[in-house]
Simulated assay, not measured.
Amino acid sequence: MEDDPVKNYEKAVAECESFLKADFAYNSERGIWPSTNRVITRMLGTRHDLGKAYQELYEQLHSHPQALESFLDMLVFLPVGWSPEKAVKARQDREELVLINRQIASLASQLAGLLSRRAELQETSGFSSETHYHVLDVLKDAAEHNHHFSLYVEDELDALHNQYDLKYWPTLSDYVEALAADALRAKVFADNPVTAAATDSRKPGLSDFLRAYYSKIEEHSVAGGGLIPATFRLSDAALASLLNCVLDLGPDRLMTAESVKRFRQGERSRRSR
């Protein structure tokens, strides 16, 4: 019978696994995405744990062309980019970028002061060191090995250099001071919604991955230009079992339906403040 729960269960598992096997074969034949294939291997090896989640996926997505495939493809790639360890690394990168901008601001400001003092000494002391004094001279030296510059830009730049004397150009110290000011006012932000979501909380943890998951769902939704319908909702238990598998979490770190529910409630509370 069409509504036989056993047959429906078996059909859902077979359909989901067929997509996973096709992805695995595609990657293997081309020698690409070995990390993704490791995720697929885990999923294919834990059918008993994932069967109910597959059934939910199939029931909600099989009537939407390619939506089930889109979801599974997103799911197996998600830990490649946003495992908890990679979320920690992303936070470290963000902190380093903030620190580097501060260092650039400080060092560039110091350099600007030195350049200004050098120019003053060369104009008033009776000594010279035959160093650069024009920003375009620095630019030409910096582009010495860039053949695109020499072929397409250098002649026009030389013409401007000859057309306008030094008073029309910033001094070297002005130029470097602008770099200092730019670094000082820099604001570090995520380049995409998934990165923003996965690094949003102050402390790293599995909540990072859940935020990345929900952000990816939004990105792959019909409203976001994808294929997953707005009505799609996995149960907390199904989501926990899928994420436990793709992340290969040990027994002491497993997500549960209750922990996923607490996360969702916490996110709603946080957004409403």
Rank of each mutant, 00 (worst) to 15 (best):
M1K: 14
E2K: 11
E2S: 14
K7P: 09
N8P: 06
N8W: 13
K11Y: 14
V13R: 15
A14H: 14
E17H: 08
S18E: 14
L20W: 09
A22Y: 05
D23A: 08
F24C: 12
Y26M: 05
N27Y: 06
G31Y: 00
I32T: 14
I40W: 00
T46E: 14
E56Y: 04
Q60H: 12
A67K: 02
L75H: 00
S83H: 10
P84V: 03
K86H: 10
V88A: 03
R91A: 06
Q92W: 02
D93I: 15
V98S: 15
Q103Y: 01
S106P: 02
A108H: 01
S109C: 04
L114G: 03
L115M: 10
L115H: 00
A119Y: 09
A119N: 13
E120V: 03
L121E: 15
S128P: 04
E130Q: 11
T131Q: 14
H134F: 03
D137K: 10
V138Y: 06
L139D: 01
H145P: 01
H147Q: 08
H147T: 15
H148D: 11
F149R: 06
S150Y: 08
V153C: 15
V153F: 12
L157T: 06
Q163C: 10
L166E: 14
W169E: 01
W169T: 04
P170F: 01
T171R: 11
D174N: 09
D174Y: 01
A181S: 15
R185F: 12
A186I: 01
K187P: 04
F189G: 13
N192Y: 02
P193H: 01
A196T: 09
P204C: 04
D208M: 02
F209A: 10
A212F: 04
Y214N: 08
K216Q: 15
K216G: 13
K216L: 11
H220K: 09
A223N: 11
G226H: 02
G226N: 05
L227Q: 07
I228D: 12
L234A: 07
S241K: 07
L242S: 00
D248C: 15
P251M: 01
D252Y: 00
L254K: 07
L254W: 06
R262Y: 07
R273F: 06
R273A: 11
